[in-house]
Simulated assay, not measured.
Amino acid sequence: MTDNTLLIENIRTASRLMVRELGFMNPTLAATEYSASAVHTLLEAERLGAVTAAQLVNELGLEKSSVSRMLGKLIKAGELTEVVSVDDARVKHLQLTEQGKASVVKINAYGKMRVADALAHLDTAKQKAVAEGISAYARALKSCRDGSQANPQNPVIISSGYQPGMIGRISEMHARFYSRHANFGSFFESKVAAGLAEFTGRLGHENNRIWLAVQNGKIVGSVAIDGQDLGNNEAHLRWFILDDGCRGGGIGRKLLSEAVNFCDQQKFSATQLWTFSGLDAARRLYESFGFTLTKEWDGDQWGSRVMEQQFTRTAG
């Protein structure tokens, strides 16, 4: 048996064991009354804020008919509700109900407990090896399904400054993401594009900078520092966004590192950013860089009513 054959067999054996131990052989999953596909649907609804049936077909790799039946059951059970798109009445977004949110809290608590219990049997070095290895393997499996190449052949490069098509691409990423998460429509996309176009004309100023994450010539992430619009020697962190396929890979942290380091170099007294509640992963990332929630209010400046938030990072 060659080394490569042995490696493949070891991975297959480990995969079978994981499937059994995590309960995927059972008719229900994660201490719920729902199937694995239903549990994953609830988790995707939480992650995306709002999701369509077509998105679930793509994300979960299931047949359209299977997804339709499953969604009907979850809606009937009170876990999901349908919301008509503000831009196209033919499109229905699915969002978690209060019951659904409570179910996801229980699912996440159960999942975290299982992981923590397993990690307790490993030393620190092996815990890190598991986290890195299983993440890389999961991304490789996904690459096989969507036809993309593995990350090593397609590195994401962080660059600064204007690139052709930047305004349209960044606006598109914002529109797609926030349509799902907050049901924002054309008003929001137009406002993003207009603000970014105005800012691009000021990129020559020493206090303004934009960073782009680029993969295979395509912009997959961005962040900008506007050092002029707030005054008082304060910086405005703007247009932080990632393409769906790049989340969870550390690209967002690299972009924010560039932005925060620039603010420190320019000696701004503070850096402000505006967002809204419910984007928990982004909030944890902001807080890891020293941002704290300083203001919160009910607003609709983006076209839909949300709980808007202001985060502040002070110098020193």
Score class of each variant (00 low, 15 high):
Ile210Gln: 01
Gly23Cys: 03
Ser35Tyr: 06
Leu56Cys: 03
Ala30Gln: 06
Leu17Glu: 11
Gln95Arg: 15
Arg20Lys: 15
Leu230Ala: 02
Glu63Thr: 09
Arg176Gln: 10
Val83Ser: 05
Gly248Phe: 01
Leu293Arg: 06
Arg47Asp: 12
Asn232Leu: 15
Ala131His: 08
Arg12Glu: 11
Tyr137Thr: 15
Lys128Thr: 10
Asp87Gln: 09
Met113Pro: 00
Ala118Lys: 15
Trp302Asn: 10
Asn151Gly: 11
Asn151Lys: 15
Arg253Asn: 05
Gly245Lys: 14
Leu80Asn: 03
Ile241Asp: 04
His40Met: 15
Tyr110Pro: 08
Met25Ser: 12
Gly250Arg: 04
Ser160Lys: 07
Asp123Asn: 10
Ile251Ala: 01
Gly290Asp: 04
Leu17Pro: 00
Ile241Ser: 01
Gln309Leu: 05
Gly204Ile: 06
Ile225Ser: 04
Asp123Ile: 05
Arg47Leu: 11
Arg16Leu: 11
Leu203Trp: 02
Glu82Trp: 06
Arg90Asp: 13
Arg12Ala: 12
Trp239Ile: 01
Tyr110Glu: 14
Asn26Ala: 11
Gly185Trp: 06
Ala129Ser: 08
Lys106Trp: 09
Ala116Ser: 14
Gln310Cys: 14
Asn261Phe: 09
Phe24Leu: 13
Val192Glu: 04
Gly78Met: 02
Arg90Glu: 15
Lys92Gly: 03
Arg145Met: 13
Arg169Val: 12
Val86Arg: 08
Val67Ile: 11
Val214Lys: 07
Thr28Gln: 06
Lys101Gly: 14
Asn151Phe: 12
Asp298His: 12
